[in-house]
Nucleic acid binder design. Structure first.
Lengths: 186, 186
DNA sequence: ACCTGAACACCGTTCAAGT
DNA sequence: ACCTGAACACCGTTCAAGT
């Protein structure tokens, strides 16, 4: 029953890095943060826990890779008014949070793994706010308002514990609130 | 060196429930969530881990008691316009978050321990919004905006990892943002 | 380079027992 | 009632070793 030591014969297709990230996300979404252990994930992939550890440099590294994968594609549309583009960017961000609420909690509770993608998105919002012609101090103020509100809404979702599909009620509430907030920018 | 089994002679003043909550908060604030283990806390109090466990029904129960203690005193002033009272209530809430950012993260990442105090504060905001004369749908919308923004700002603070005294820059940023948001209610 | 097994230093909690 | 010690079933990670 036990696998032999050392590298397995190459006939067995090896488990890729992406396989690991994908399986980790699936496990996290289905069973929550407590269930995402290196050991459980390894079991599911029929590999050794240390294999995962070596690929990502530990559990934090794995979580970092997961968040990069999830948030990499979040971006603002190329056309439209700056305000519309801000709204769409934050909606896209929030939509990903709705898909993986437990991941959001993990990221927040472990500051060391906070993804570069989050900084990228934040910076993009700052740039768009400046494009409107807002003075510097109000650019900062509104960037914090919009980003913090989005994170707070994410938190509320993550705490509810369920996963949501795009277009759910939760999503609509967020969209309405975001529209209301963006009115304050005019 | 080892303490004897069973109940210690009553000459040694026993460790009270409040002592445990206080020491737990101190440990959490100083060294972070990972350091708040039943065993480390027991060591610090020179008692058995299981003593704490029995008093609170486990680690989650302890965290619940900590959050009740921290948020119990957060309340709105008795006089003033509803909008002012909302602002003060959320500022008081946020001020406690600034004092114990790691506790906030713990609460959020463990939905089962989310404190009754949070519900109490949320309900109070709903009531104050209704007092302004806002229609029901806008009461809900703005309650979410204000509460979620406050939580998001709390998150940003908690992630920064440091503790802040009242009146810090972080606090001022929050106060300015809150004032800006409350303008949207008129 | 890539993968593995055994061991280490933890953890919360169950259980049975003391006073 | 309140407190304790030992044991259980975990955890991430270090280490040394295989191919």
């Amino acid at each position: 029953m036990k696998r032999p030591r050392g590298r397995p014969p190459s006939a067995e297709t090896p488990v890729s890095r992406d396989d690991m990230v994908g399986a980790a996300l699936d496990l996290l979404d289905r069973e929550g943060a407590a269930a995402l252990t290196m050991r459980a994930l390894a079991e599911r992939l029929s590999i050794n826990p240390m294999t995962i550890h070596h690929h990502f440099g530990g559990r934090d590294g794995l979580i970092g890779a997961m968040s990069e994968a999830v948030y990499a594609q979040v971006s603002a549309p190329k056309h439209g008014t700056p305000i519309d583009r801000i709204g769409e960017l934050l909606k896209a961000y929030h939509a990903q949070v709705l898909r993986h609420p437990a991941l959001t909690m993990l990221i927040f509770s472990q500051p060391t793994v906070f993804p570069r993608q989050a900084k990228r998105i934040t910076d993009e919002i700052s740039a768009l706010l400046a494009e409107i012609g807002l003075p510097d101090d109000r650019t900062l103020l509104w960037r914090d308002i919009l980003v913090d509100f989005t994170h707070g809404a994410a938190l509320a979702t993550a705490m509810s514990g369920r996963n949501w599909d795009r277009g759910s009620q939760e999503d609509q509430g967020f969209n309405m609130a975001m529209r209301e907030l963006l009115l304050g920018l005019n």
